[in-house]
Design a protein around this nucleic acid. Structure first.
Length: 493
RNA sequence: GCCCCCAUCGUCUAGUGGCCCAGGACGAAGCCCUCUCAAGGCUUAAACCGGGAUUCGAAUUCCCGUGGGGGCACCA
């Protein structure tokens, strides 16, 4: 047996926004290809003209790039098996569909959708399984040809054997045997000349020499049909792995796009475009998605290279997984902490500038180490660190009053601190903390009261990065000014 | 209605007949550290869906229930 080079693919249809389900369907084949030194392909399955959405393909491509799931062949970069967009491969499907007719494995069907609808209703009424009643299956082939040539509308259906059974294999679940009598004469080529998934995907996977098909479990029931089609052509069968579906966070029901509104309210979304907006980084998203449906024994935090190194197709899990946004937050925060200072600086800078803040690179580089371990999402940098880039801050007056003190006492504390700090030629962690701690000692107050007042005065907020490191970055002049302002505010209360 | 798949802590999972009074991670609780918030360290609570069968021995194999999910289009 010859070892074929591994080729995998992500074959989405451009019918909507890219969500985490799509991302995972792209991730696993990508990982498999990279792990085995194979090729990863992007193929666009745009044969449904009704559900087609302009811009969806670009969103898919953007999402893949954002995640770093770069493909070796695809519609925008070409490759040895182009085109990679199914609507541009019409002739190929047409030819293959008729090949099957010649082989007596398929037949042209002229039934109208009206008649099919009536038949289906009748079957349902009689509690029978809805399926094609076989009217055109026995049509004389010459007559069928004639009608086709006369321009009559037709589809091509698979001629499912009436008897026997077929055994198919899913690498995660083992073999599954299905009675052919339970299968239908499914449409392979639509009357608009484009293939259904059942023909299009099989033809392309063969032509593009795909060795491992990793796809959603919604395809599991039609796998017998797919194997029938592949065998009818006499082709080799790829390895199949069907991924489980994503469940809603509560575990009840399949994840759906309708939940988006609720998710966005608490800062979460299943759409990649939204996630980027919300401050999630690709490393975190990837790690999160990877672990839903892939069993890794220990050490959950992985970089892309570690994922590639450890991936194997049979460590995928067959059971449905409920999405858990808390875990996403954890992975995102963890990967943010893994970023270098320069990298993180570059990633959070846009959040500040978008707010109209003037970002000094040198200051930013000093701020990043203080922010790093406090960020869950990138946009958290705003609530934690905007004050670094503002000329002045406007704390809420009541926040300036320390616990257990009143406004007058708080003003006195601020005044004393001001004196201590202004006695220093420069403000640094080393210079400021000792004298202020000494003051805390002699005043009989506690550090939370004294440092708390200063924190609010200098940063404008009750929660901030460490006080003295922050003051050092802000600088002597601004710090003193802000404390002075705070004293004024307190005096007016 | 019919067909198919799945089933370990709340969640994601490890586990391929003895190493399991079931391991890790998120989350939760507590403690430590601490100028706030985090991060970090330590600790605790928390699961093999039920019933049969096979076996000296079952989370692990088989059967039946139950629960959950998917599919039955000229959609993918």
């Amino acid at each position: 047996m010859s070892i074929k080079p591994v080729r995998t693919r992500f074959a989405p249809s451009p019918t909507g926004r890219m969500h985490i389900g799509n991302a995972r369907s792209a991730l696993y084949p990508f990982l498999l290809a990279r792990h085995l030194g194979g090729t990863f392909i992007l193929r666009i399955e745009d044969t449904d003209q009704k559900r087609f959405e302009l811009g969806a393909e670009q969103e898919l491509i953007d999402g893949l790039h954002w995640l770093g799931l770069n493909y070796d062949e695809g519609p925008d970069i070409g490759g040895p098996h182009e085109p990679y967009r199914q609507t541009e491969r019409r002739a190929i499907y047409h030819e293959h569909a008729w090949k099957l007719v010649e082989l007596d494995k398929a037949f042209p069907c002229f039934c109208t959708s009206e008649r099919l609808g009536t038949v289906r209703q009748e079957q349902l009424k009689n509690k029978q399984n809805p399926r094609y009643d076989g009217l055109c299956r026995t049509l004389d082939s010459d007559e069928a040809r004639r009608r086709v040539n006369d321009g009559e509308k037709y589809v091509i259906r698979f001629k499912m054997p009436k008897e026997g059974s077929i055994t198919t294999a899913d690498i995660l679940r083992g073999s599954i045997t299905t009675e052919n009598s339970a299968l239908d004469d499914t449409v392979l080529l639509k009357s608009d000349g484009l293939p259904t998934y059942h023909l299009g995907a099989m033809v392309d996977d063969h032509e593009m020499q795909i060795t491992h098909v990793i796809r959603g479990s919604e395809w599991l029931p039609s796998m017998p049909l797919h194997i029938h089609v592949i065998r009818a052509f006499g082709w080799d069968e790829p390895v199949f792995a069907h991924l489980s579906v994503f469940l809603k966070p509560n575990g009840k029901g399949k994840m759906s796009k309708r939940d988006r509104a609720d998710d966005m309210k608490d800062g979460h979304s299943i759409f990649l475009g939204d996630m980027k907006e919300l401050g999630y980084i690709p490393e975190g998203v990837l790690n999160w998605i990877a672990l839903m449906g892939w069993g890794v024994a220990e050490d959950d935090v992985m970089t892309m290279n570690q994922m590639i190194e450890r991936f194997s197709i049979d460590s995928l899990t067959p059971s449905p997984a409920a999405i858990n946004f808390q875990k996403l937050d954890h992975f995102n925060a963890t990967h943010i902490r893994l970023l270098t200072t320069d990298d993180l600086a570059a990633r959070i800078k846009p959040y500040f500038t978008r707010e109209g803040l003037n970002v000094d690179e040198e200051v930013l580089l000093k701020v990043v180490p203080l922010l790093r371990e406090r960020l869950v999402t990138l946009d958290d940098c705003l609530s934690f660190g905007s004050f670094f880039f503002k000329d002045n801050v406007t704390p809420a007056p009541e926040d300036l009053i320390a616990k257990g003190l009143d406004a007058v006492q708080s003003a006195q504390v601020a005044q004393r601190a001001y004196e201590i700090l202004s006695a220093q030629p420069t403000i640094s962690h080393e210079r400021c903390e000792p004298p202020l701690r000494a003051y805390v000692e002699e005043s009989g107050l506690n550090v939370n009261q004294v440092f708390g007042i200063l924190r609010v005065a200098v940063t404008g907020q009750k929660v901030s990065p460490p006080l003295f490191e922050s003051m050092e970055i802000i600088g002597r002049e601004k710090c003193l000014l802000r404390i002075k302002n705070a004293i004024e505010v307190l005096k007016k209360m």
